[in-house]
Design a binder for these strands. Structure first.
Lengths: 209, 209
DNA sequence: AGGTCAGGGTGATAAATGTCATATTTTTCA
DNA sequence: TGAAAAATATGACATTTATCACCCTGACCT
């Protein structure tokens, strides 16, 4: 396994090198201290895994990752950081970075590197526990809480699909006038003015967008 | 490392056992063939990692995972599956499952188990490549792509806040009639029928909900 | 039998919306 | 500079919406 390490803290870089090369099958091919170097070293060595700090002086690890992944979407990049940050995680994942873990957690670095090497994605503990949070759906529209009946709720959801009263009537087998009355009631209960506000309200209180 | 394996395919279970126990430090504490058993075996053995098939006859792995994680949020569960499925991934991650990978990919099973054991989260290759997709923000509403002018776009966004023509006119220092004309044009360009559909369209094509 | 309440309906009416044809004024630019 | 292309505006009109007052039916209660 050939690794490239990029970290602007030289101590960290050498510590990592020591930890990794303790294993017989791991070889640190090169190391650098800045995002720009990361790009250069990646091009030059095409390592199995690029271990990179996310915050660095000139060019950040994130920018470097973007650059590298644009050139080689198969690149296996593993971020190292001293703190976890939602924004970074999401951004990094969007780029296609293969992992993200904490420096402190030195015992987990080697398994993580191995896993990434087989093409998998790895997250550190702190980040993992936040994932469900990050992925959680928005609270869904609770019609009972607003005093809406089942039928009224159906009307609301159809309004939020852009249907006219006539269409809603057809859909629910009601007369157009009844639908009008329903909507009038609903607007009253929800303290809204017209169907457009109703659609907006529903859409912004529902996850399925 | 103590592992519990649950898979309704006995062949797979024993193959996994063989692969894992080839390593000196791994011990398969027990194995089962159904979600119900998974829950029981987890309670009984509290393994370092629970390796579980996601699709099983009676109680699915997903249901079992939910149950187990409710009792022990720290449980390290690693799903195994023969096919990848977006729905499952997202659901599993929401529950707090620690990983998800393909059975075929037997070389990556051991590193994955080790990584999960140190508390990390691991995804198989196929899933990883989908992650950016899953997390990608909704494509933002590109008004130029629809031939809308800057001003028309402003009108659209106000419609999508539920403002009336008069209010929009006031907001943009236009006459009400002009706003009406704008909206008429916009609806034409976007092939929509009324302002409610416009609001829905805008909201569903914008990420900031 | 009478009361009442929810679900569904009608019709009248006023306001808001959408369409169109037709100006007027600015901008832009060959 | 002069003409085309925008941005803005008006008025007339048809449609759709929203509100309201009232009606009918059937279930349920007592």
């Amino acid at each position: 396994m050939r690794i490239v390490i990029v970290d602007d803290d030289v101590l960290v870089a050498s510590a990592l090198k020591t930890i990794l090369e303790a294993e017989g099958d791991v070889k640190v091919a090169a190391s650098g201290t800045d995002g720009k170097e990361a790009v250069r070293l990646y091009r030059e060595h095409r390592p199995d895994v690029l271990l990179m700090d996310i915050r660095m002086r000139e060019v950040s690890g994130l920018a470097a990752a973007e650059e590298i992944l644009k050139e080689d979407p198969e690149a296996r990049i593993l971020f190292l950081t001293t703190f976890s940050d939602d924004e970074y995680i999401v951004k990094a994942l969007k780029y296609g970075v293969k992992g993200y873990l904490l420096k402190q957690d030195y015992k987990s670095i080697l398994p993580a590197v191995r896993a990434v090497c087989t093409g998998q994605t790895v997250f550190g503990t702190e980040i993992t526990s936040k994932l469900p949070e990050l992925l959680k759906e928005k609270q869904s529209f609770d019609y009972r809480a607003h005093g809406l009946s089942e039928k009224e709720y159906q009307v609301v959801s159809l309004v939020a699909e852009g249907l006219s009263n006539k269409e809603i009537a057809g859909e629910l087998f009601l007369s157009e006038g009844t639908v009008r009355n329903y909507i009038s009631d609903i607007l009253d209960k929800l303290r809204l003015r017209d169907r457009t506000q109703l659609a907006v309200y529903y859409l912004t209180h529902t996850q399925n967008i």
